[in-house]
Design a protein around this nucleic acid. Structure first.
Lengths: 114, 114
DNA sequence: TAATATACTTACTAAATCGTAAGTACTTGT
DNA sequence: ACAAGTACTTACGATTTAGTAAGTATATTA
């Protein structure tokens, strides 16, 4: 009885600041993983290229998600002062380090989901 | 030019039925990964135990998410016809096979996020 | 002169997700 | 007679997330 209570308590604390939750909040969602994946396949991409490459995303969503990912240092934005504008996006080192994780998730998903 | 167009087209198709998106839809979200994680740490858990173990979750959310995870065969629900009711939840083989993925995500998150 | 190109932003609407509080069913213990 | 225990469900409202459509800036091209 006592031991069981303690066991649950331990899990409780682990779930509290769960790193997986943090991950899902920052890298999860409908568009972020796809953006990262597309940038893993293509070193450098411009806004329009990303827009075309990612089916169904709107410009609003794309720009928003890119901003979010830039903030947490997953992608790098390089803009050239030309007209018409030119902006390049690429993954940072941190962003690239997600490759193994995303590949594993992809494999698991292919084998196990619908 | 032509080759570049083709390249993007290829990525487009890969993004189309993206397995990562499927994964996020089915295993992602605010509570599902945590539920799975807690069940990875504790082979068998009852409803109330899960409720206590997962900070902040409501009974409604818990029961909803458990149902979702049962549908895609990640967890198994075993109910005993007793009063007061007793229901046991445990991961299926498929559910357990998520361990490596979640562990890797946890590690990456600990090293790279906030 | 007007359309084109690029990388956005803004305003508004719709849909999905989440949270709170209360209720249900049934038996055992006080 | 009434509270306690267990595993939920239901109704409602709030919050978050996503989608649509239009607009902005400015040089180049037709």
């Amino acid at each position: 009885m006592k031991t069981e209570e303690k066991k649950i308590e331990k899990i409780y604390h682990q779930a509290e600041e769960c790193p997986i939750t943090v991950f899902m909040e920052q890298i999860g969602g409908k568009w972020k993983p796809v953006i990262i994946w597309v940038l893993l396949l293509n070193e450098v991409m411009r806004f329009n290229e990303l827009d075309k490459a990612i089916k169904g995303i709107s410009q609003k969503m794309l720009s928003q998600q890119l901003k979010d990912l830039e903030k947490i240092n997953i992608i790098n934005r390089k803009s050239y002062p030309v007209i018409p504008p030119k902006v390049e996006y690429r993954l940072t080192k941190k962003g690239k380090s997600l490759k193994e994780n995303l590949t594993k998730i992809m494999e698991w998903s292919n084998q196990n989901l619908k």
